[in-house]
Amino acid sequence: MKLLKIASLISLAGLLALAAVYFFVYNKPHTNFEQAKPDFKLTASEFYSAFTDTQEQAELKYNGNVVELSGKIDFIESTNSLNIAVLAFGDGLFGPEGIRCTLLDNHVEKAEMLIGSDVQIKGFCSGFSGSDVILEHCSIVN
């Protein structure tokens, strides 16, 4: 009888542990991109050229990774829900084309003050839209 009780308790503890693991994995937080260590550091110009010159290789290398770029913010485009720092490298079908960095809310003001200046900007590379490289969750590093 005592043995059965011990076995039941161990089983219950095991189930609780499994439930806890499932709960924490299921609810694991999103990456804190502001604190994330960059996988790549390079100039914005090199980064953009990689996508326009050798799109396939650039997508395989950079998509899904955190990159830190050094370059110049040309302007900030604001929509209802996004503030996007644009590092432009030319004009195309959609107007200025380049790297579009969706800013974290707490970095918008800093980015606005640094328009036209050299900055280090870090973000998650989502991919290439055909005209622009999309970086998200961006923060100003310097």
Partner: peptide, 9 residues
């Protein structure tokens, strides 16, 4: 990759 979900998983 620009689709954002409530849960990271």
């Amino acid at each position: 990759r620009s689709f954002n979900f409530e849960k990271a998983l």
